[in-house]
Write a protein that binds this DNA or RNA. Sequence first.
DNA 1: GTCTATACACTGATAGAC
DNA 2: GTCTATCAGTGTATAGAC
Lengths: 196, 196
Amino acid sequence: MDDHSEAKRRVLDAAEKLFMERGYTAVTLRDIAQALNIKQASLYYHVAGGKEALFVEVVERNLARHRAGLCTALAQAEAPLRAKLLAVAEWLFSQPPLDLGRMIHSDLPALSPAQAQRLERSFHEALLQPLEEAFAQAQATGEIRPAQVSLLSGMLLTMLEAAHSLPTHFRALPKQRLAAEMIDILLDGLRLRAGL
Amino acid sequence: MDDHSEAKRRVLDAAEKLFMERGYTAVTLRDIAQALNIKQASLYYHVAGGKEALFVEVVERNLARHRAGLCTALAQAEAPLRAKLLAVAEWLFSQPPLDLGRMIHSDLPALSPAQAQRLERSFHEALLQPLEEAFAQAQATGEIRPAQVSLLSGMLLTMLEAAHSLPTHFRALPKQRLAAEMIDILLDGLRLRAGL
DNA sequence: GTCTATACACTGATAGAC
DNA sequence: GTCTATCAGTGTATAGAC
């Protein structure tokens, strides 16, 4: 599983940048090769399986990084849930934005069914699972009131990715402030209250 | 601006279904023609400008419908903001899901800059503007506390579209219940409280 | 590791018959 | 309105030289 060969890493980096920005079908192997100042055919030296294999490898590496980053962000941040979620936002903003919707509805259907299913599973494990655990823990300690953890995780992830990727035209504030406000609103709505 | 010719409407319907599902680059004219049981070249009788013109016309029609639907939903629903937002959710769920992220980062860059800019403007007018007005009004009447209306609109739209389009695998509840819970959490976070 | 050359399929688009 | 035929352009992929 080690990616020896520095060159291979550079190929994956360039491919990741383009695939994550524009999606699977919109990016050509020539685009990727051009970004590396090499010719399209040279890519086959690094990734034998061609475009699809390259895409799968890129996404899987990206998701593994996300899982690791999210888990350490959640583990290292201090106790209150708010701080942990802010750490999550900070981590997500440090990464290239991922368009979950396009991935699932546009990119995955263009792959072989086996690969598509594998990637969809990775999505859940890397992105939702860590958040679900954090919310469940906060519920167990009574920090927030009970609610579907999968719902909360999806809400947060979706909102943060939107804040991360949507152009300035759609948002007046810097994304960090925007994230903080969204998290505050979310947590205010989840506070323990009399009558619940 | 009238789309006489029933046939033209059928073409736009088929194109809209495919374009909205898979995105601009992933859909070929042959895909659309096949859905209509005609040949690819026949599409040029209905839309002279080819693929790009077809896409722009489809999206513009979709957004006009959204603007109208959102405005009447917001106008007809009874007073409390919660009811209005639920009506918005109901309307959005009655329409084919739109992937705002893919649209902006994948589809628009594949068009000529002029058309891309035009569509991006339409997005704001059709989707965000009606919601922004509703939030501003609720703030004016003191129903919710002050907050960036563009932020709130973006949050709501993003969350609802995610609930609408993400596969069951990512959500345990039916999307209507999910929307209701998200709206409640959002509004709970915006209630007037002592100290604000 | 990267290149050139090339095969082959597919895509958008045009011309013209019916 | 829809067809067939056809084109140029682009896409992935392979073979083999350096």
